[in-house]
Design a protein around this nucleic acid. Structure first.
Lengths: 204, 204
DNA sequence: CCACTTGTCTACCGGCTGGTAGATAGTGCA
DNA sequence: TGCACTATCTACCAGCCGGTAGACAAGTGG
């Protein structure tokens, strides 16, 4: 095949690998099918990444950077103090709409153990610290119900990822409607949930 | 090996398969290692289940029945109208404490597509209908914030499963403490979240 | 124009995986 | 006792999967 050049091919391979690792899982996806989807032989893939694990690590790093970048852009665009959580969640859903396998890949990263997940999560570490600071400040100011901010962040994270990755459940529970619409509805529902979780007026 | 008898062995194999499908994923788990963990050769497994897919289906059915039974017991034990959601969630967390791979397996069932998930979810269908009725009645009575009950149920489902299955994320976010303690904290957090999501006094 | 690097390919391999064929040994029953 | 049935095993196998070895073409610099 006509040599397409180095760095671009590498990126293409990583993107396709994220797609397939997300859809089929790490052990379900094969080097052969990833390479083939990019229009290249398996050995070409192995030229860029010495083995499957190295490919995974590249995917984790790339995914982390992408999410972090997306979130930071969203935060810059909405400097209002109020809808910050909403802006971040919206950014994630935008990414999911453009790249459906992305949330599935993140979930797979979590399944592969803390080591793998940290490779992804380290890119988000500054944002995590910032989020906890934001939540703590909100609690101190009485704008957010008092609770352990780290646990709250964890629960919100899982709610968002869950809502994004459990498509089969959604189909079974509410029937399968158009994918775009369904994503919008899920986003609205999750944002509602987050708002309720943060509200200090909740019955306790 | 000394013949242990038929139905018992079948159950043991299914339980071990759920464990390994949960930990390693469907394609990550091998017939060999499942059989070996039970102390039997792979061919004995294939004597009870004609192929890997049949084993999976048995696991899905068994898991569905187990969860349904657990939930129904919990509902019978707490006839008060108020903490019904809490009782059901508590039952799921009890099951997860006793059988850590169980939630992971359910998540894997969702990943394998609507077909596989329905094989699991059909056992929960009556409970789903009942839950939606419960939510609708609560909304009509003004005890629960008005919204689409099916979507609400979906979101709560994903929040619970997410909180149960994202152990790596939890370790990364709040540090890895003792598993039992952590599970208790997660349960408390999720119940708080559900309460907030149901409360009609939320800002909207 | 030649050496060197880069990117892609063909050819191959050892091992694992799901699955088949068939032998063997206890068990229940007539 | 003998016969059929149930449960388990040994022995294989075809195909796939990750990975190695090395040929070869296309630039690129001196």
């Amino acid at each position: 095949m006509p040599r397409t050049g180095g760095e671009g091919r590498k990126t293409t391979l990583v993107e396709e690998a994220i797609r397939q690792f997300g859809r089929e899982g790490y052990s379900g996806a094969t080097l052969d099918s990833i390479a083939q989807a990019v229009g290249v032989r398996k050995q070409t893939l192995l030229y860029y990444f010495p083995n499957k694990d190295a490919l995974l690590e590249a995917c984790l790093a790339a995914a982390g950077q992408r999410v972090a970048a997306e979130m930071e852009t969203a935060l810059e665009a909405s400097p209002d103090p109020e809808p910050r959580a909403e802006a971040v969640i919206h950014a994630v859903y935008e990414l999911a709409a453009e790249w459906p396998e992305f949330p599935m890949f993140i979930r797979e990263a979590g399944r592969l153990g803390p080591n793998a997940f940290d490779r992804f999560g380290s890119a988000l570490e500054p944002l995590r610290v910032r989020a906890i600071g934001f939540l703590s400040a909100g609690m101190a100011a009485g704008e957010i119900r008092k609770q352990d901010p780290a646990m709250l962040l964890f629960t919100l994270y899982t709610a968002v990822i869950g809502s994004l990755t459990e498509a089969s459940v959604l189909a079974s529970f509410v029937g399968a409607d158009d994918a775009r619409t369904s994503l919008k509805r899920r986003e609205a529902e999750v944002i509602e949930l987050v708002r309720a979780a943060l509200a200090p007026t909740s019955a306790g």
